[in-house]
């Protein structure tokens, strides 16, 4: 299963970026093999508006089944749902730790946005 994690650094040993739309990097991890691709998200980090929607659009292109992040706002959540991507919020620690929590079933799938738009 291909899972995306929002990340502050281009490495699985770096911290999870709690922001979804304006995450610095998107790390796509294959949960079976551990193989990881790094995708730069700087364009959306600096977007005037609609960062969450664009980031969701990028994830749809990357063909992932789920995303692990800190928080997701209403527009991001709607775009992710429409793309058939499951959302797991509340992730902490490093990307590797977040993936491990996900694999162990410790992260709960979000049923709605957990923050207002522009919470940061």
């Amino acid at each position: 299963m291909r899972v995306a994690v929002t990340a502050k650094e281009a490495s699985v040993d770096g911290p999870v970026d709690p922001r979804f739309g304006r995450a610095r990097y998107l790390l796509v991890v294959d949960t079976e093999t551990g193989e990881t691709d790094v995708h730069d998200n700087e364009v959306n980090l600096n977007a005037a508006q609609g960062a969450g929607i664009q980031t969701a659009g990028n994830l749809a292109q990357l063909n992932v089944s789920a995303v692990i992040t800190g928080h997701a706002g209403p527009n991001a959540f709607r775009a992710l749902s429409a793309s058939g991507i499951a959302v797991y919020t509340g992730a902490e620690g490093t990307v590797a730790e977040a993936v491990e929590s996900f694999n162990n079933g410790k992260l709960v799938e979000a049923k709605s946005a957990d923050v207002e738009g522009h919470w940061l």
Partner: peptide, 22 residues
């Protein structure tokens, strides 16, 4: 989806979504 600079209309997985507040 390509022309909108504000992400107010987006093609996602074969469906077009609109975000009127943007």
């Amino acid at each position: 989806s390509e022309i909108c600079r504000y992400s107010a209309i987006v093609l996602l997985a074969k469906t077009v979504l609109t975000f009127p507040n943007l």
